[in-house]
């Protein structure tokens, strides 16, 4: 169980996340929704401990994990895939298990890394450098690295932003099956509402740094919520498989501030 309590993130005097609290079950996949600048990335970074944040993050029996302790159990995948270097793809994956690496890398670890790469269809790229592959491929590499860490918590900032349709589905399927199999808790900031409704067990919707809706996709998503969150008129259709399909129609003025739950 992940417990986030009283999480507040400030940039200087500007508060972008205020006193957020929620709990997530092991094996669950939660999509974090909201317009640009509503604090989704800051929330993920605050939980990961990569930016200063007040409040508590606890995991099972480990109460109030300090930021420097979180790297062991939390894997955070930033949104930016632009950082390039002449590190090869296989080296990037291996870095996911930083603490297990010494002057000699165990063969078993190398084989495990290669196996994860092959699982993402990246086996042929493993000796290429990050500069030599596309932005979408880099996103897949970083995602493979996050799974290679085998974390308790997986925090993904727009994990499908640079991917084609097929890879969007493959990636989210792999993440949710990894969560179910290993009891990992995944939180992914997303903009594709239909994909979030299809893949996530739970949606947390944010506006102005606060949670304004929280629950299962079919319970949470509505025409009025989408209008309030994004300023967009949309069609919601429930498919024969029970999954919601959201079609954005046109942009409208954002009329009111949504009340926190």
């Amino acid at each position: 169980m992940l417990n986030v309590t009283g999480l507040t993130v400030k940039y200087g005097s500007l508060s972008v996340i205020t006193d957020l609290a929620f709990s997530l079950e092991p094996g669950s996949f939660t999509a974090l929704l909201g317009a640009n600048g509503t604090g989704k990335s800051s929330l993920l970074k605050g939980i990961a401990g990569v930016i200063p944040a007040s409040g508590g993050v606890s995991l099972q029996d480990r109460k109030n994990l300090q930021p420097h302790q979180r790297g062991d159990s939390i894997a955070y995948m930033p949104q930016d895939t632009g950082a390039t270097s002449s590190l090869t793809v296989i080296e990037v994956i291996l870095l996911g298990r930083l603490r297990s690496l010494g002057m000699q890398v165990p063969r078993s670890l190398e084989n495990e890394a290669i196996s994860i790469l092959s699982g993402f269809g990246l086996g042929a790229l493993e000796t290429r450098t990050l500069e030599e592959i596309s932005g979408g491929q880099r996103q897949l590499v970083y995602l493979a690295q996050s799974l290679f860490r085998n974390p308790d918590i997986l925090l993904l900032d727009e994990p499908t932003a640079a991917l084609d349709l097929r890879h969007q589905l493959i990636v989210l399927d792999r993440v949710s099956s990894h969560c179910r199999k290993n009891g990992t808790i995944a939180i992914a900031a997303m903009h594709d509402l239909s994909l979030a409704a299809k893949c996530a067990d739970r949606l947390i919707c944010m506006s102005d740094g606060k949670i304004v809706a929280d629950g299962k996709p079919t319970e949470v998503l509505s025409v009025s919520l989408i209008r309030d969150l994004y300023g967009v008129e949309a069609d919601l259709v429930t498919g024969s498989n029970g999954i919601l399909h959201i079609t954005p129609l046109n942009a409208v003025e954002l009329e009111k501030t949504v009340s926190p739950v």
Binding site: V50, Y76, E91, L95, R99, M103
Partner: peptide, 24 residues
């Protein structure tokens, strides 16, 4: 320097990714 060789390698992924791997 050899004691930090993997951390230094990870730094080439950028500060944010290095921090996310637990590096101060």
């Amino acid at each position: 320097l050899a004691r930090d060789s993997w951390k230094l390698t990870a730094l080439r992924l950028g500060d944010e990714r290095a921090r996310s791997l637990g590096i101060n």
